[in-house]
């Protein structure tokens, strides 16, 4: 692994930690939702980075190139397919979360989780 690519992975990990920090520390429902979204983007980015190759070609095979040289030059398409699925799942979770936030706001009149504390013990 070269120094540059190591740097990218490190930044990706930092992004993940920013999201986790946001979820754990912030008191506002909307900020927690944003934190979760950031965490998920970090993982998606990580998936893409796994399959990435510097100066790689798009993973679309045409009749002209043979399979060996194609495999040596193209980026890995599988993580991209995974990211598509993961984005769709993320959309579902995000929608549900935002809907819950709206309902919670209707009931409690606040986004502050220190005031939404009926369940304890």
């Amino acid at each position: 692994m070269t120094r540059e690519s190591g740097m990218i992975y490190a930044l990706c990990f930092v992004l993940f930690m920013v999201g986790l920090y946001c979820v754990v520390v912030k008191k506002n429902l909307v900020k927690i939702v944003l934190g979760l979204a950031i965490m998920e983007y970090a993982v998606n980015l990580f998936l893409i980075l796994i399959g990435y190759r510097k100066d790689g070609i798009a993973p679309i095979i045409d009749g002209a190139t043979d399979a060996k040289t194609f495999a040596a030059a193209s980026v890995d398409p599988l993580p991209q397919a995974l990211v598509l699925t993961s984005i769709v799942i993320g959309l579902g979770v995000l929608t549900l979360m935002v809907a819950l936030c709206i309902r919670l706001y209707e009931r409690y009149g606040t986004f502050d989780i220190t005031q939404i504390r009926r369940l304890r013990g």
């Binding site: 965490m39 998920e40 979770v93 409690y108 939404i116 504390r117 369940l119």
Partner: peptide
Amino acid sequence: HDELEASFKYLVLGSV
């Protein structure tokens, strides 16, 4: 009230 609060808590930890 309770159900929404529990659901949100579960949702956040479940998503993590």
